[in-house]
Design a binder for these strands. Structure first.
Lengths: 223, 223
DNA sequence: GGGGGCTCATGCGTATTCTAATCGTTGAAG
DNA sequence: CTTCAACGATTAGAATACGCATGAGCCCCC
């Protein structure tokens, strides 16, 4: 998930970004309304978190502008003001939810996720297939040739990433970043260990091994 | 078979139509309540799939109007809301079944076909079944293998949600949102406690445990 | 004020993850 | 053809995080 934070208080924005990225959410920061509008117009965000009061262009105007242009991205307003009139103004301008400072961090992340989910109604892409391997994201189950395969959470994440990049060779660094959310090298062989486990589950006992190692580069999942 | 989809989210409707037509079902789409009513009045549909909340005319009003006119076409409501009042309102208005978003696609098509089949019998769907577990929504009683199970209100709601998403893994966040209507993380183990109690009632003493935990993800009810 | 149901907190047991040490494989150079 | 070094695979054990159960307290409704 990718969200845009439009907030003039750099420190607050930083804290927010750090917290959200721990929850696996990718964040982009814009430091005022004008920059924020430009970024939002560029698109590609699942949710916008917008401060209500900012220099150059306030949050209300920003969102009104976006909505006039037909942009439907969900917006969560942040504000130091908690009065009813203000809230109403925010919602009228096209905001989807509202959070009053100071807020509990868990609250922010819960709401961001709720907003993101609201958009993806009913039938999202919930099953990924690569060859005879199928992953059901909603049921959280994996099948190969009809046989159910029981995976641990990490293994599941790892396989999801590999399946989303099937046919491409995936480096250890990519896996550390995207699956483990380590932004440094842990100097251990965590990945090797999990690949080994995953292999034992998805390849052992089947004719065609799918999880291949690309020596010196990383791994690749092939149909 | 020919069904009418009344849904304002064009994307969701498109996905639905594509999926159903693969199952050999002909679909017609109406983008809001008023258009939907007109189309339904024209007739010729075996089942109506109606979003509960829409611009112009909401799903409830649409179905009430149809029923007043004597139209008995089976209706499947779609809704983002999972509350009891809401569900009862839907059934009272003349809906025959109810599906909570986000749903697995297979579930939608199964229910549409079930409704089409039940057309002759004319009975209304007030009982949800998953395996040997049955929930009577109106009588507010639950049976497993014929034995009556006494549940607390919260446990009932929780089980209803799990049954409506049987086979899918349901996260704690989803449960907090839909069953508790918390939009933040209460930082306690409320859910765990209720799951534990529910388990004691629906699984203890039966051969096959239905309520499974999906470690790191949530829970899943399996037949 | 009493009672039923809901929520919270604690400690325990265990599944899962990580670390580290050993073993196997590969490819290139002598 | 053999040897060596680098790289990857596998395994077992330790550390950790997660989920579970239970009892106590709270709150709301009667």
């Amino acid at each position: 998930m990718r969200i845009l934070i439009v907030e003039d208080d750099v420190e607050a924005a930083g804290a927010m970004a750090r917290g959200l990225s721990e929850a696996g959410i990718e964040t982009v920061h814009a430091a005022d309304g004008v920059l924020g509008l430009a970024a939002a117009q560029a698109g590609g965000f699942h949710v916008l978190v917008v401060d209500r009061m900012m220099p150059n262009m306030d949050g209300l105007t920003l969102v009104e502008t976006l909505r006039r242009e037909g942009d439907q991205t969900p917006v969560l307003f942040l504000s130091a003001l908690g009065e009813i009139d203000d809230r109403v103004a925010g919602l009228k301008a096209g905001g989807d939810d509202y959070l009053v400072k100071p807020y509990a961090f868990a609250e922010l992340s819960a709401r961001v996720e709720a907003l993101a989910r609201r958009r993806e109604t009913g039938s999202v892409q919930t099953i990924i297939k690569v060859g005879d391997l199928e992953m059901d994201l909603i049921g959280r189950v994996v099948h190969r040739q009809g046989k159910e395969i029981d995976l641990q959470p990490r293994e599941f994440q790892l396989l999801e990433y590999l399946m989303r990049h099937a046919g491409q060779s995936v480096t250890r660094t990519m896996l550390l970043e995207k699956v483990w959310e380590y932004h440094f090298d842990p100097q251990t062989n965590v990945i090797d260990v999990h690949i080994s486990r995953l292999r034992a589950k998805i390849d052992r006992g089947f004719d065609h091994p799918m999880l291949q190692t690309v020596r010196g580069a990383g791994y690749r999942l092939e149909a």
